[in-house]
Design a binder for these strands. Structure first.
Lengths: 201, 201
DNA sequence: TGAAAATCAGACTGCGTAGTATGATTATAC
DNA sequence: GTATAATCATACTACGCAGTCTGATTTTCA
């Protein structure tokens, strides 16, 4: 049997799991997962030991997909205004991806049952993002904040929480706010503060 | 039968529910909930129609507890440095309350199954907090940001997300950062930016 | 004290579902 | 073209759990 064939089956299973878990969380039904993947239930169990393993594999794979979508080299070379504008826009665009949003919800929801996933999320996605951001701040002559990493966390937190309240908690209906408003104010906050920090030296 | 007696029973049930739901999420077992409350299972069902009702009642009550713990009048009268320092500290102190942290996790986790709870959280806790903050910014002569509400959301988001990553996702172990660092940088960011904004006029 | 209401313990029902077993069907490879 | 391995459909097992029922015990209050 071809490895390729195995890979295809595995892929179909994960596709079914993706849809079901995204819709129903960890409570998703294994029969349904198999059906959505167009695959026999038994086959699911030949590729994955049990539900936990499948869930972990799925979230893992989902995270992998978003690892690269971070800080590129060319981004890091922009001047602060363009850099923050671009970075913010990229971060906020993720709000439109139901798979990204669903992944975040699942990680938070199951952080009790699957602490390794929460850990992986922080290690693979959050930390690198914050570190790149902090590094950019640190190395920008025009931005001299006293604690670049803390500033990076503030920026990151503001963006992530905006997504959580707007998309996960449905704030886009009950307390909507355009992304541009958030983005502009964030830009204003950071650049003005940087300007003043420079002056204060 | 005394109303008071009913109230006591109801209270015991909710105490059991609190512990069980906080530990196991909505997956908590009704037998266990009754046992933890020191109450017969049947009694639970005389006070609450079903599990959903009980869960909603519990989260509702939990939110009620944190509604008042917001912006007090005297806080609003402080000058910006003291105001932000105090406000930030109050917000970050909630991280030490497992009931607060657990409530947030449950609301996010069950926002699919219980959208009304997510809505209530935004309406009763988040919006008032952001509005008070925005109002303070708007009415402070020394703070003239172009969009006070957006700035309020940024500050609020940074604080909430710090709690989520540190406490819910266990970042306090894998990527720890002291609250004072976050608080100081937030203060620096806001005050410096405000200073510059004033100058820019 | 005694009748009515509330609570109790615990058994029971019904259902959903994770995981397994089976025997038939299809694809792979030599 | 045949043997081998993979996949399929489906039935079955075992178990956990929400919600109900019952009959005994306790509390309330007149």
């Amino acid at each position: 049997m071809t490895e390729e064939r195995q890979a295809k089956k595995r892929e179909k299973i994960l596709e079914g799991a993706l849809r079901a878990f995204l819709r129903d969380g960890y409570a998703a039904n294994m029969d349904v997962i198999a059906a959505e993947g167009g695959v026999a239930k038994q086959t699911v169990y030949t590729y994955f030991k049990d539900k936990e393993t499948l869930f972990a594999a799925l979230v893992d794979r989902l995270m992998e997909r978003f690892v690269l979508a971070g800080m590129t080299a060319e981004l890091m070379e922009l001047e602060p205004p363009a850099f923050f504008r671009t970075m913010t826009q990229i971060a906020l665009q993720r709000m439109d991806d139901p798979e990204y949003v669903g992944m975040i919800r699942m990680i938070i929801a199951e952080s009790g049952r699957f602490p390794e996933l929460a850990d992986m999320y922080l290690t693979k996605l959050v930390r690198p993002g914050i570190e790149s951001l902090a590094q950019y701040i640190r190395e920008s002559p025009s931005l001299n904040f006293s604690d670049p990493e803390a500033v990076a966390r503030i920026i990151h937190g503001a963006l992530v929480n905006f997504m959580i309240s707007q998309e996960i908690l449905n704030g886009k209906y009950s307390m909507p706010m355009g992304r541009e408003r958030l983005a502009s104010s964030l830009l204003e906050l950071v650049l003005f503060a940087a300007e003043q920090a420079k002056r204060a030296r």
